[in-house]
Structure formats: structure tokens, C-alpha cells
Design a protein around this nucleic acid. Structure first.
Lengths: 235, 235
DNA sequence: CGGAGGGTGTGACCTACTTCATAGGCTGAC
DNA sequence: GTCAGCCTATGAAGTAGGTCACACCCTCCG
């Protein structure tokens, strides 16, 4: 591993909420012990059910966390970007991975082994709190996802996820915020089919809330979408 | 608080996975700092959205954790029994409660304040691991619940939850395992209506897999139910 | 006693989805 | 080139499950 790479990885790990409490020195030893790995878009990083002794921090690119179903369908739980971590559950409790992780784009990861992480936590017990915060955050997210899935109907769920995607998407054109997911992928987010998503988006385009151009959805009227998302329409 | 009560609470806390690693002495001080509280069936213990500075350990009875929706509906996330804990998320990250907790039966709880728990973790950093295990367990559960909700259809979900309920139900009659939840409540478990649950159970009764008598469901043919639960039938 | 409020059982109907089919467009590989 | 494989678009048909309405049974309470 080159010196420059190490330095960059160190800087990037500093961006992780998990590690930004550490002193520089600690971060350096952590990076030294970590394996840096690259994946190209579409590659699978790990699969649900496999044993997992490591966790990953995203250095660049984005990662897709999903749960597969028996027959090809899948539900996307999250898209992770630089500075976020994943795979920590299996590392912490020593059991199987609970979901699939695949590279959504080309990406680079820092892979940390269980023994290294536990050793670090041993030296710095205060870091446990960070770990716990990450887990709590995950739990809040999944709890919310559960209730939405069970209690809200498709248009509301779709509106909510569009807004969420809009929030952590850097790319905004002059006309509005751009979202770059295929309709099939949006379906995987909200637990619906490609066709249903298409119809919903079509309606909204006709209503002037957004428009669809060349594999990109442009949100023009965010307020209306927010209204749609907070309608108490249930199943 | 009476001496006998303290002793009993100590014994019961020892049954919690979270605390069974502690020495007797530590457990005693923890119990001394805890408030013992009783709730009668139906009482609400805390509500989603309220601030939460405490967590609870169930000493006796059972607790119902649920997420309410705008219009009366709700989704039941878990039923907790003696030896289990809840409310730890808000305690750990200092944010709002993510769900409602109500007394499913008359029950007694040990209520632990944030400062006491954090102090204990400070004295015994090894206890963090236990906390993390609890959180990981929760995450595994909710992840599974999400994927079932999104990917499986009602009969499969219902079969799965019946089997789960059967597992941690002590009451088994000579004829089979008894499950004592109303059909409406089962609906709240699987995200469906009373009527749909009724129809499904009716079919299964006709098929001889279970029978229904006086507000009790008796599982007679567990194997068939397991078969139904593992069918890959999707939505 | 009667009535309110809980439970189960069932039908008729409605609708939010899925499934299936078809059509066309673009990109990248052979 | 053309073919495979991805995407969007849209409409017809099928269906799981929700909604509504009713009947009936408890038990608890005034």
C-alpha cells in the first residue's frame, strides 16, 4: 500500500462518525491493519447468510445493502456513501451476515477485521458509545421502514423515498434535484414493481411535480411531494 | 421497597442476558438504584415520540411493543416477557422513543435511568459487549421482519408468526400448543386485518392443521404449518 | 335485566396492486 | 451491422387483501 493511499484512507476514515473521536495515532494504526479493497460496480461484497468477521468503511463510491428473496426479487435497505460503515452487525455478534452488500458504483473500502476492532475498543472503551450510536441509528431507520412498509401505501412510500434520495444526492440541476435511480430500483426500495412505480411517476409528471428525462428524475416541486408523503393514506 | 422484593428483583435481573455477567455486588447496587414499577394490563408505559431517559427490564408479565399509525391501526413489533429488556434505544442515544410500549398483562418492571446505566458501563466496560449483542439481536429481528413484510404474502407471514408465538408460549395442552392472541391482534402482528386472519385460520382449521376454540388457537399439526411457512410464495 | 364492548365467522364488494403482453429506445459487445 | 440487455411506457386482466355489513357469542357492569 502506498504512502499516499494510507494518508488518504486515514483522512477518509476521519470522516466516519465512528472514528472521528480517535486520535490521529490510533487512526493510523487502524488504517495500517485495515485492508484496502476496490470493487467495481455490480460486484458483490458479501452475501446474506455467509459468515462475517469483518466490517467495512466506505472510502469512495456507493454500496447497496439489500435483502434478496427466494425468486429474484429483493428489497433495498440502504445506499451507503463515503464515510459510512456497514457489515458491523456480523462483526459484532459473530453471526451470519443479515443482508447482501454489492457495489452500486466502483468503490473503495477499508476492511477491518474483528480482532482489530475489538482490540481497539478494548484500548478505548469510550469508542463503544460510537458503536452503539451507529446501531441505534440503524434500528431507528429499520423501525421506520417497517412501519412505512406495513402501514402506508405505495405513492406515500415512493414520495418519502424520493425525498430521502433527494436529500443525500449532491446532484441538483438548475431545474430541480436530480435522482439517478432506475424505476426498477425505486421499486426495490419501496417494495413494489417497476410498473407500479412507473405509473405513479407518470401521474406526478402529469401533475407537474417532477419530470422524467433520460433515466433521470428531476424533482421540480418538492413541496407538493412533501405533501403527498405526509398524507395519512393507509392500506 | 421491601427486602424480599429487592432480593426477588435481583434474582430476576440475573435472568436478563444483559446483566447475568455482573457480579452479585454490582447487581445489588443496580437494583437499589432501579425503580420498581407495576403496570396493569392495558396501561401504556411509554409512547412513540416521547423523550426517553430510561430503559426497562421485565420482571414479570409481558409487554407489547408496537408502532401506531395515523388512524388507529398499529403494527406489533414484539411481545416481551420476563428477563427481556426494552427502551434501551432511547436511553442509549438520547433521542425519542421509537415505538409504543404497553402492558400486555399486569406486569412489573425495573426501570433504570440513563446515568445509572452509563455509570455501570463505565465501571465495567466489558458490559458494552452485552449491550451491543442486544442491539444486534434487535437489528436481526427487524431486518427479518422487514423482508417478510415486503416479500411474503399473508398466509406465510401468519404461519411464521404462529410458529414463533408457539415457541415462546409455555402453555401447551395435550392436543397441541396453545396460542392466546385474538385474531385482531394476530392481524396487528402480520400487518393485516382481523378478517383476513380469520379466513386464513378458517382454511387451516378445515385442513386440520389447527383448531380454534374459545379465543384460543391450538396448533395440532406443526409440521404442516412449517411447510406453509417456508413456501416461497411471494406477492 | 339490558346494553356496551369485546370476541369470532362470513359473505359481497372494491381497489391497490401484480402479472402479462407489447412497443419502443439506448448502449455496448460480437 | 444486429443482437442481447438494459431502460421507459402503457394498457388489459387477474388477485390478494381491505372494507363494509351483518350475525352471533361471550362477559362485564350499571
Amino acid at each position: 500500500m502506498k504512502r499516499s493511499e494510507i494518508e488518504e484512507a486515514q483522512r477518509l476514515l476521519g470522516a466516519c462518525s465512528l472514528f472521528n473521536g480517535l486520535e490521529k495515532e490510533e487512526r493510523r494504526t487502524l488504517v495500517e491493519r485495515a485492508k484496502l479493497r476496490s470493487f467495481s460496480a455490480g460486484q458483490t461484497i458479501f452475501s446474506m447468510g455467509s459468515p462475517g468477521n469483518s466490517m467495512m468503511a466506505v472510502l469512495s463510491g456507493s454500496i447497496r445493502i439489500s435483502i434478496p428473496s427466494a425468486s429474484g426479487k429483493e428489497l433495498v435497505l440502504a445506499i451507503l456513501k463515503a464515510g459510512q460503515i456497514f457489515g458491523e452487525i456480523a462483526l459484532l455478534d459473530g453471526k451470519e451476515r443479515t443482508a447482501d452488500a454489492t457495489a452500486a458504483t466502483d468503490c473503495r473500502l477499508a476492511v477491518l477485521e474483528r480482532s482489530d476492532v475489538l482490540a481497539l475498543l478494548d484500548r478505548h472503551p469510550s469508542a463503544w458509545l460510537k458503536v452503539v450510536e451507529v446501531l441505534c441509528d440503524r434500528l431507528r431507520r429499520t423501525d421506520q421502514q417497517i412501519s412505512e412498509l406495513a402501514l402506508l401505501q405505495l405513492p406515500v412510500r415512493l414520495a418519502k423515498t424520493l425525498l430521502r434520495l433527494a436529500e443525500d444526492s449532491a446532484s441538483s440541476s438548475p431545474h430541480g434535484i436530480e435522482i439517478q435511480f432506475s424505476q426498477r430500483e425505486l421499486g426495490n426500495f419501496v417494495g413494489a414493481t417497476r410498473e407500479s412505480v412507473n405509473k405513479c411517476l407518470g401521474d406526478w409528471q402529469r401533475a407537474g411535480i417532477l419530470h422524467i428525462e433520460e433515466n433521470v428524475i428531476v424533482l421540480t416541486d418538492r413541496a407538493s411531494l412533501q405533501a403527498l408523503a405526509s398524507i395519512e393514506s393507509e392500506r
